[in-house]
Each structure stands twice: as structure tokens, then as C-alpha cells.
Amino acid sequence: MPFSIQTAVLTFSLLSVCAPALADQVQDARLEGSLQTALALNRMLNPFRIEVVVKEQRARLSGEVENEVERQLAEHVAQATRGIEQVDNQLRVNPGLVERPLELRAYAQRLEDATLASVIRARLLWSRTTEKASIEVQSSEGVVTLRGKVDSAEAKELAGVVARTTEGVHLVNNLVSLDTAAMAKARENPVGAPTGPQPSDSWVVDKIQNSYRFSRNLDGLNIKVASTEGMVRLSGEVVSSEQKTIAVEIARQIIGVRGVDADLLKVATKVEG
């Protein structure tokens, strides 16, 4: 029995010592992942193989970049990562990397175009006006081309607006055409009429928030969204009355939205300096 008590005490002591160390390792791993993600999402840095090691909130960067500007940028990204207290920048500058980054940047651009097209397709699916429209979306270096047929001029126009207002889009070629037969059929069932079960309020809020996040016209982080049985309430702050109008219109066209109350969405007042 005494042996068992001693063993238990020893085990407890070891756990007491190891628990903080384990928590630190988990925290370091999370910071490592956050920093690697930030570097991968940076357009200038994602072509380079930058290794990251984080220990006790200190990040060590190693690998090679093409020039000193990119070396300093990587350090700034690390310093801006929440939780990183110090940065040991061991990145080497190698001008001979020019060819490889060009190849990888082309690959990164293809991925970015694919992502951009997917974002636009998703936004079209969330809209009551274009959810059933057969619209093909293609992106090449930020130039988006829309093709297909829709049943109303409103759907064609909205498709173009959705594409143009998506962050990362430089130009839109709206080649969507009007299907006269479908237009005649659509007149029998107006766009505003419910066509299916009411989506959950959490779904509605999520799609509005994502639409704000993907829009180049809004700072979605400053807009709070709530929904009760499809009645949406917007609150927070925007920088102009134009932004408020855009926020209301984006919310209004989401599937399941029955009304939008934006009385609590305030326009920031300018302070004269």
C-alpha cells in the first residue's frame, strides 16, 4: 500500500510538471500553424518555401527568398501574427530563385482564379434571384467571364454586380443572355415568391456575413447580423451611407430573408482634425 501511495504521488508530480510544458507545446503548434497560413496567403511570399518554428512565442524563419524586400515582409507578417512576441529572421536572400517563383506564382494565380470563381458561384447560389440560374463562371488573372442563360434581366444584372463587387475581381465580362421561354415561365412565379422551405436563421446569418466578407465594398467585420425567422437586423458601423445601402441590398437578396432592419447600422461621423 505505501508503495502505491508513493507511486501515485510521483505520478501526480510528474503530471504537474508536464502539464504546463504540454500546454506550451500545443500553443506553439497553434502559433506555427497561424504563421504558416499567413505566409501562404501572402501573394508575394507564397511562392517561397519558408520554414517556421515557434517556441515560447518566438518564431524562427528559415529558407530562401528572392530579395531583401521579401525577407523583411516575411518578418513583418510574423510580427503581425497574434501571439508571436519575437521573430528570429534567418531567411537568406538568393536572387537565383527568380525562375522558380515565377513558375510558382503562375500556379498560385491559377489557384486564386479557381477560388475566385468558386466564391462568385457560391454568392450566386445564395441569392434568391440567381440561385437556380445556370451561370458559368471563369476567372483568368482576376478577369471574370460570365456565361449562361437566365430568366430575367434582373438576374443578369445581379450576376454582374455580384462578380464586380467580389474582392479580387478586376474586370467582368457579362456574357449572360436572356432565355425568352424561361422568362415567360418565370412571370408565373415571381422571384420574390418562396420556392422552398425557409432556411434556418443561422444559415441566413452565415450567408449574409460571408457575402459581406467577400465584397470589396464593405468592411464586414464591423457589421453585426442577426435573424429571427428570416427578419434580419443589422447593427454596427459603416463609413458611409452608400455602404449602408449596399449592406442592406446584399442582405435583402439572400435566400430566406423576409425583411431587413438596418436602424442600428450607424454611419460613422467624420471627426475634423
Rank of each mutant, 00 (worst) to 15 (best):
F3G: 03
S4P: 04
A8S: 11
T11R: 13
F12N: 09
F12C: 10
L15C: 08
S16V: 10
D28K: 05
R30N: 12
L31A: 06
L31S: 01
E32F: 05
Q36T: 01
L39K: 06
M44L: 14
N46E: 01
F48E: 00
I50H: 00
E51H: 15
E56K: 15
E56G: 15
Q57I: 10
A59E: 06
S62C: 04
L73N: 00
A74T: 01
T81C: 04
G83H: 07
I84G: 05
R92F: 08
V93D: 04
P95I: 08
P95S: 03
L97D: 04
E99M: 08
E103H: 07
E112M: 05
E112Y: 11
T115V: 05
L116S: 05
I120Q: 01
R123G: 09
S127I: 08
S127N: 06
R128Y: 02
A133N: 08
I135M: 07
I135E: 00
Q138Y: 04
Q138P: 08
S139Y: 08
G142T: 06
R147H: 11
D151T: 09
S152E: 03
E154W: 08
A159S: 13
V161A: 02
V161I: 11
V161L: 01
A163I: 05
R164Q: 12
E167C: 05
G168P: 00
L171K: 14
L171V: 08
N174E: 03
L175M: 03
D179N: 12
T180R: 13
T180C: 00
M183S: 15
M183N: 04
A186H: 00
A193V: 07
T195R: 15
G196V: 02
P199Q: 05
D206Q: 14
D206G: 12
I208D: 03
Q209I: 04
Y212C: 00
R216Y: 04
T228Q: 12
E229Y: 09
E229R: 12
M231G: 09
G236Q: 06
V239D: 15
T245P: 07
E249M: 11
I250K: 07
I250T: 11
I254K: 10
I255K: 14
G256T: 06
V257F: 06
V260Y: 07
L264H: 14
T269I: 12
G273R: 15
G273Y: 02
